[in-house]
């Protein structure tokens, strides 16, 4: 719903505050997903969050999609497992990150084709989540994989992570998109001139 975000998001913020019986004076910080994900959708969320923070002079806390999805994993089912989050780019590859059970990074957030990244994943038991998990699953026959049916980030996890960060005076990521991919643009030959 890339286009739908631009319509739905701001009224949703309004509604959520009303439901909570809160106004902006009671809000301490604005947290926002920075991606990776649809470029346009990520920007819609970030622009709104940055607008709110600017208008109310509030701190901004950026949370990446991997952290938000990992936060939602059921603790008991995933105990002792490395976490692999695979997000479908809708372009036949994946946004991917992997973290060992110890909390150490196994694969830094990246964009990759499933077959290119499979050798980099932890050989240990894995908890696999994200809407791109079905693209990795067939390639992980030899590994103990627990698939968790979580597709994407949930705003509750974003807010929960941020409140924990804020309590320990951490700032999270900067509130700018984590694109992981350069914009597609071709520099024309001779700058388009008819003569070199």
């Amino acid at each position: 719903m890339t286009r739908g975000h631009a319509e739905a998001l701001v009224p949703m913020v309004d509604e959520t505050l009303r439901e909570a019986g809160l106004g902006f004076p009671e809000i301490a910080a604005i947290a926002v997903t920075v991606g990776p994900g649809s470029f346009t959708g990520v920007r819609a969320g970030l622009a709104a969050a940055r607008g709110l923070a600017l208008a109310r002079d509030l701190p901004l806390i950026g949370i990446d999609s991997f952290a938000a999805i990992a936060h939602a994993l059921p603790a008991r089912e995933c105990a002792g497992r490395a976490t692999v989050v695979a997000i479908d780019t809708k372009r036949r590859d994946l946004y991917l990150s992997a973290v060992f059970a110890s909390g150490e990074t196994a694969v830094e957030p990246c964009v990759a084709r499933p077959e290119d990244v499979i050798g980099l994943l932890p050989a240990a038991p894995i908890a696999l989540a994200g809407d791109g998990r079905h693209m990795l699953r067939p390639l992980l026959q030899e590994v103990d994989v627990r698939e968790i049916a979580i597709d994407g980030p949930d705003a509750r996890d974003v807010a929960l992570i941020a409140s924990r960060l804020a309590a320990s005076r951490e700032t999270g990521r900067p509130a700018l998109p984590l694109y992981l991919r350069e914009p597609e643009a071709v520099v024309p030959k001779f700058g388009g001139r008819l003569r070199p």
């Binding site: 902006f24 470029f39 346009t40 819609a44 969050a49 208008a55």
Partner: peptide, 19 residues
């Protein structure tokens, strides 16, 4: 260009909501 328009519109809506 829709990508840019969305950035401006979302920022403006957020400021409007905030006040």
């Amino acid at each position: 260009l829709i990508g840019g328009v969305i950035v401006g519109v979302m920022t403006a809506k957020a400021i409007a909501l905030a006040h």
